[in-house]
Amino acid sequence: MALPSYATPLDRAWYVGFRVICAAVFAFLIVPILVIIPLGFNSEPYFTYPMPGFSLRWYEEFFNSPQWLLGLRNSIIVGFFATLVATVLGTLAALGLNRAEYPGKPAILAVLISPIIVPIVITAAGMYYFYSRIGLTGSLAGLVFAHATIGVPFVVITVSATLAGFDNNLVRAGASLGASPVRVFFKVTMPLILPGVVSGALFAFITSWDELVIAIFLATTEEHTLPRRMWSGIRELLSPTIMAVATLLILTSIALMVTMELLRRRTERLRGISG
């Protein structure tokens, strides 16, 4: 938005002022995330700048601590299986939602989306109450189911969005050439909706990877995930190891964000060609 030639001096002042305000808001958004990264490399256990020296001791501490490594392992296991469950069930459901109109569809959709509407504490409390009665608390399986439920709406939403731009005549063409519905799905539908499925899966994974409240309710020490371990750490003593873990979590987020952006561009390119 360059300034038009008829701008008055007041317009010019406002133009500069506006940019300064925007810069301040962008700084507010990004600085807190960037500032935490160097603190994990501090040679002393303080959180002040300038840092007295550079050290990898907190990362060493992380990779030598059985508790943190258990947290890492649990986070990976739970994240993987929760994503698997959410992606398979969510993709099938999105295909079903896109296939036909029928009465009661808004109600069904409401149920499928509800896990991201219900406040997380209520979800966690309900699961704690119910899962403890059927023996699912204190097991990774309980966490997997819980995380799958809160990740699945993202899969349904992203896959549905991809299907909205999907030409159903391609399926008919496949069928008319004699392919079975299963073959058509894997040869025609799946390759075209794959970016949506992968984005949904990434959303489901990051949801589980960052999830804390359910882990507070359901996990005993044996099932502590990384965020759950971090939560205990913060409440006991804020150590630079926590900053190191935070940095690892930020890096995961960046990796996922970049993948997502590449997928989005790929889809846009494909759409550009077909349309």
């Binding site: 995330i33 990877w209 971090m230 935070a246 930020i250 987020s253 996922l256």
Partner: peptide, 9 residues
């Protein structure tokens, strides 16, 4: 980036 970064972090 903030949108994708963990709430706890």
């Amino acid at each position: 980036l903030p949108f994708w970064t963990s709430l706890l972090v």
